[in-house]
Design a protein around this nucleic acid. Sequence first.
DNA 1: TCTAAGCGGAGATGGCATCTCCGTTCCGGG
DNA 2: CCCGGAACGGAGATGCCATCTCCGCTTAGA
Lengths: 251, 251
Amino acid sequence: MAASTETPEQADGQAALARHAPQPPCPAARPRLRRDAERNRQRILRAAAEVFTERGLEATLDDVARHAGVGVGTVYRRFPDKVALVSELFQDRIDAMVAEAERAHAEPDPWTGLVSYLKYVAETFAGDLGLRQMMMFGAHGGTRTRYARERMRPAVTRLVKRAQAAGQVRADLRATDIPFIAIMLTTAGEYAAQVRPDIWRRYLNLIIDGLRPERDTATPLPVAALTPQELEQMLSAGPGGGAGPGRRFSP
Amino acid sequence: MAASTETPEQADGQAALARHAPQPPCPAARPRLRRDAERNRQRILRAAAEVFTERGLEATLDDVARHAGVGVGTVYRRFPDKVALVSELFQDRIDAMVAEAERAHAEPDPWTGLVSYLKYVAETFAGDLGLRQMMMFGAHGGTRTRYARERMRPAVTRLVKRAQAAGQVRADLRATDIPFIAIMLTTAGEYAAQVRPDIWRRYLNLIIDGLRPERDTATPLPVAALTPQELEQMLSAGPGGGAGPGRRFSP
DNA sequence: TCTAAGCGGAGATGGCATCTCCGTTCCGGG
DNA sequence: CCCGGAACGGAGATGCCATCTCCGCTTAGA
């Protein structure tokens, strides 16, 4: 194979870890690892990213270990527990989310700013089950996600207020409605994950049309609707397609 | 002779229902119980209805027994297993749902019919977690719920088509979008259960406004939006308020 | 009165996820 | 090249929880 060019994530991961590590914030505190150990550490982080992103936070550390090609013991030697691993893993993604809320506010057109933010959030959650669970379920690093939401809140409020001041959004919308829209869209996406993962775009457009104070035409709904067969398959399997995190009531 | 060219979904309802019933629907088949036994049976059914409706299907039979004031053994003597109990319990509620889909189609105004159906579904699911889980997650009596959905499908299709023919609904809406709307609304309600259980009404109106082909004004959003504090509390707890069925990622 | 139906609930059973332990492997400094 | 100790793997200890069984005691009702 070609000489392995280090992915930016790896280098970046180190920095983020040092900055946000819950226990020892000082990078020097972590002693240099033997080369094989360091390599495994990276493997674990990469595997964890893939597994948690795809299958959600209730994937087991055994899964992560297997996916990384190491033993569970190795995982637990590097990370005190599951929470620590997950928490470290999602830190920069959460930061990116906050940054996007602020970026959207910089958009010249208020309506475009609001819509692009909604789209970004839905897209991000749709593609990252683990991140979604961190932000939308109390679980894992509560302080961390709470802080992220606190930082996002004023940006979203301004986003909504500005669009309303421009008369582009119905006056009775509130900033707290935005997270609900995100939750609803993401849920739709999660249900349809196996069948039509981007069906949420259809409902984003639907909701966007509902957000306007008045309008002459509807923006067309993108992505085909499910066929009745696909719908039946989806409802029979439940969210996540049957194997995923929604498989809650099997007895 | 009956036409053999009938579409499958419109095949004889009652017969299929009887065919799918796991136990004989005839009560006479069940031998007379001693008076105390019969009384306990009723208690169990009532307790199960309350518990599963409120807390969802993953409430344990121990919960049901305790709530009924009997021992678990008594529950298991009357019902072979959890699935049998749940399945029997929700049968008529499912039937009622199907009936409502047909009733909505009898509504004189197409738009009113569609909206009232949406409202009914959201309202029903919001007030009955167990029913929601039966219909939206593959779990428990798959045949039974599948059959219910099969009967609902043509009614919903007609509902949508009729409203479109009258120019009251955007042309690109499809019948399979309706269940998604129900899913999204119910999810919003489930999240906010502890804080503002009927917040879904807000988003029903939002979506309804999105359904129209064009409009001059928005229908006002009922129910106050969440305060930022309520929102934070909700997102910290997760769907169901922390104790419910959404508490999936605690480790 | 007397017997079989009924009862309660402790606990057997099975499953699953987290985390530990220890015999073995293999870096890497001297 | 060699050897001490870091690192490894993964079986299994531990803990939890839900389903369902079993058996000694209770009670309806002929």
